[in-house]
Design a protein around this nucleic acid. Structure first.
Lengths: 193, 193
DNA sequence: CCTACCGATCGGTAGG
DNA sequence: CCTACCGATCGGTAGG
């Protein structure tokens, strides 16, 4: 029998919640729905989590923390700016493939955060965007990248990856590596010959 | 005094609903919230609409109908495939700028459609995607576009435009024309030099 | 971890 | 277009 510690059960609740929130939205998912997936009465889950809001917070900050850590990793690398952008892009695709439900929730349901948590999440996101934008600016200044509007480039890149989670599953007729390479080719080299 | 016919009031309800659904999600918006924005009791709106679900349907199908009409327009044009793709892209950005809230709802809240309407919406979307994909395939076959995976290219393009509505407002330090041109440059010519 | 239950809020209807 | 109200469902608590 697998051990069912408090931590494990909490983790299970968070994982099932991410799947349900992605599918039906935070507001569209009831604690009774979630209980059904976890195999527990709604009331029983309150032994492992504080509130429905706290579940959302855990998922959103897990994602924003990961993004920020990845940016820091890439920044301290010794590589050209083009390579740094490419590397960050690959990490985006990877996280999407590994933890797509959580990324989806952080992208779409962060707006249901409240108070301090909402403020903190917006700040984390802004700080990540600033860091990424700086990378693009440096790449342009160094003559490595086309002199496009940095904000437009930033959001185009960030959005371009978001569909992956809705579309990709192994056995799609394309491997994860090919998927990644295709996205990078389109964004770095463009569609037109 | 402006005339307040039944049709006008219905239109106002749909417009306010699109804004609220975008902001708080379909499930997160109550009919009382909506009544507050429209300036009417929740119960009174039922003289103009059949149900909350019907509001969502009207918004989603307005958007999918528009997309499909734009695709048909572009397809019958005499132009290179690259130009057709560019033209379709420009229309995407335009609709986003003109009717951002509705586009946002069709992108994010279509999942709350039910029964026949859900089926019909999915089919409309699939038919649009097929049509767009065919354009890309033809462009590749003609040697105009890089030989990338068509599905990957399609979804990368469609997603790359979605952030516009969340970010852009006149006075952003960039005009609508520049915005459009930057997005097209990035997607067609790529970021790297 | 469950049963029983709370006050609040939901979409929607009746009747005027 | 409003008042009054319906049954259903919500997030969450008490007590065991």
């Amino acid at each position: 029998m697998a051990k069912r510690g408090k931590v494990n059960q909490r983790q299970r609740i968070l994982e099932e919640a991410a799947k349900l929130f992605k599918e039906k939205g935070f507001a569209g998912t009831s604690m009774r729905d979630l209980g059904g997936e976890v195999g527990m009465e709604a009331a029983s889950m309150y032994n492992h989590i504080k509130s429905k809001d706290e579940i959302l917070e855990s998922i959103c900050f897990y994602v924003s923390d990961t993004y920020i850590a990845q940016l820091a990793e890439v920044k301290q690398t010794e590589a050209s700016y083009t390579e740094k952008v490419e590397s960050l892009l690959r990490r985006h695709v990877h996280l999407m493939l590994e933890d797509g439900a959580a990324v989806s929730v952080a992208n779409n349901d962060w707006k249901y955060l409240t108070g301090d948590k909402l403020t903190a999440f917006k700040e984390a996101r802004k700080s990540y965007e600033q860091g990424f934008a700086t990378l693009l600016e440096q790449g342009i200044a160094a003559g490595e990248l086309h002199p496009v509007n940095v904000s437009v480039a930033l959001f185009t890149i960030l959005s371009a990856v978001r569909w992956v989670e809705l579309w990709y599953y192994p056995g799609r007729g394309i491997s994860a590596e090919e998927l990644e390479q295709n996205i990078i080719t389109i964004l770095l080299n463009g569609l037109a010959k």
